[in-house]
Design a protein around this nucleic acid. Structure first.
Length: 422
DNA sequence: TCTGGGGTCCTAGGACCC
DNA sequence: TCTGGGGTCCTAGGACCC
């Protein structure tokens, strides 16, 4: 049996842990640049606040209805996530961290337990240890665990836990689960099977033939079909494979024309990519830089520049990444456009101890590695970009708008929670 | 005024091999 | 008359996830 543990309204819940006055009140969290709504508490959902609603349009509504509004605080959410995951790891031998707020637990060894009781204990413990409410679904496959989790949250709200441990319960959940809410059915397939072929529920989908599903969805669909019918086809991935791509990109809070400022942004993104590579102990063999004008402003001249540059010997040293990345930047930057977004992707990633050298070039990177280690340790303890590359500059123009940022209560001594005693 | 960021997997088709 | 058969690798694009 597999359990899926999913944090309820995760970002909103994180904010509430340290500002409990918002428990029971509507809370929303905004995207980068405070652009649109990306997370809502149940109270906010009940008020009809939509996912993706534009923040500036909603402002009067938020005021009127007493909705608490936060900028995204990924430092806080990331740390809260690792607390939740650590807690879960004490309940199962195999835990797959699936996303910032979700994990699969292999409960095979607990099959003789009362799983309702056991998962309820997990839920209560996570809440006690971290302050984060979770919902748990259990089933014979990952897809069934996902379905059970949805069912637990919507239908068995009081318990927040649901276990599919027999055929009747499987049918009950699948009959309830709308087609589009199946894990792996996105907009396209929902429209194909739902609108064109009259399939409305997961139950009806599960009765389709392999061939019919394969035609539209390939093997992915057939796997899903089997999973819903209780035959697990998607394995647990407890060891996180190293990433195949790493991307750092941002939209700017306003349109930017200046080459110098965009160069500062790109320089910073390259630095971030280097840090991420070194954190993963990997090196990249290709670096891509891209620049976009505002695609929503159809009245303005558009330019989508993107260029990939091969790095002769895969690296994770920032100066080298900077060299090739900036070469790409020089190629794609065009004067006279208003840029809205830029980013850097590193690809062809290999473990840093398996880097293929060049035939006629001896590689000795001891010095650079020492330098990078030192830089990472300084910036790690003193704060990001404390020591920075000159090209990154000090410009603020491109930096995220975060007007409603909460404190980093768990990662910064200066922002730790203060309690007054009377 | 404004509309996020970061990933994975699969497939088809082209280019190439013997 | 009748055009072999069986592979791999790479890339772009589509679909999906949170």
């Amino acid at each position: 049996m597999i359990a899926l543990v999913d944090c309820n309204n995760f970002y909103a819940s994180c904010e509430r842990v340290f500002q409990p006055q918002y428990i029971g009140r509507p809370v929303v969290v905004l995207s980068n640049n405070d652009g649109c709504v990306i997370a809502r508490s149940n109270e906010a959902k009940a008020l009809g606040v939509e996912m993706g609603a534009l923040a500036h349009e909603m402002e009067p509504f938020f005021q009127k209805n007493g909705v608490a509004v936060f900028s995204s605080n990924y430092t806080l959410y990331g740390d809260m996530s690792s607390r939740v995951m650590h807690t879960l790891q004490s309940f199962a031998p195999e835990v797959e961290i699936y996303s910032i707020d979700e994990a699969f637990l292999d409960l095979t060894t607990f099959k003789h337990y009362n799983l309702m009781e056991y998962t309820t204990e997990i839920k209560e413990t996570v809440h006690q240890y971290t302050g984060i409410p979770v919902g748990i679904g259990v089933g014979a496959s990952k897809s069934l665990a996902k379905a059970a989790n949805k069912y637990a949250k919507k239908v068995h709200k009081d318990k927040g836990v649901y276990v599919i441990d027999n055929e009747e319960k499987r049918e009950e959940v699948l009959r309830w689960l709308p087609l589009g809410d199946i894990w792996g059915i996105g907009r396209r397939n929902q429209s194909y099977f739902g609108v064109q072929h009259g399939v409305n529920s997961a139950w009806e989908f599960s009765k389709l033939s392999d061939e019919f599903v394969r035609q539209k969805m390939g093997v992915v669909g057939v796997r899903l079909l089997k999973e819903l019918n209780g035959i697990p086809c998607i394995d647990m991935e407890t060891i996180r494979p190293s990433k195949q791509n790493i991307c750092t990109s941002r939209s700017f809070p306003k349109n930017i024309e200046s080459k110098e400022i965009i160069e500062q942004a790109v320089g910073t993104f390259i630095t971030r990519c280097g840090e991420k590579l070194r954190m993963d102990k990997t090196c990249a063999g290709v670096i891509t830089v891209f620049l976009y004008t505002n695609r929503f402003r159809t009245d303005m001249r558009q330019h989508h520049g993107s260029l990939s540059v091969k790095i002769p010997i895969p690296t994770n040293h920032t100066p080298e990444l900077m060299h090739y990345g900036m070469r790409a930047f020089e190629e794609i930057f065009k004067n006279g456009y208003l840029y809205k977004k830029a980013g850097v992707i590193v690809q062809d990633i290999v473990p840093q101890d398996q880097v293929q050298g060049a035939l006629f070039q001896k590689i000795d990177r001891t010095k650079q590695t020492k330098l990078m280690d030192l830089l990472d340790s300084i910036n790690g303890s003193m704060g990001q970009d404390k020591v920075r590359y000159a090209v990154s500059g000090y410009g603020r123009e491109w930096r995220l708008r975060m007007e409603k940022l909460s404190n980093c209560y768990t990662t910064n001594w200066n922002e730790i929670l203060k309690i007054k005693l009377r």
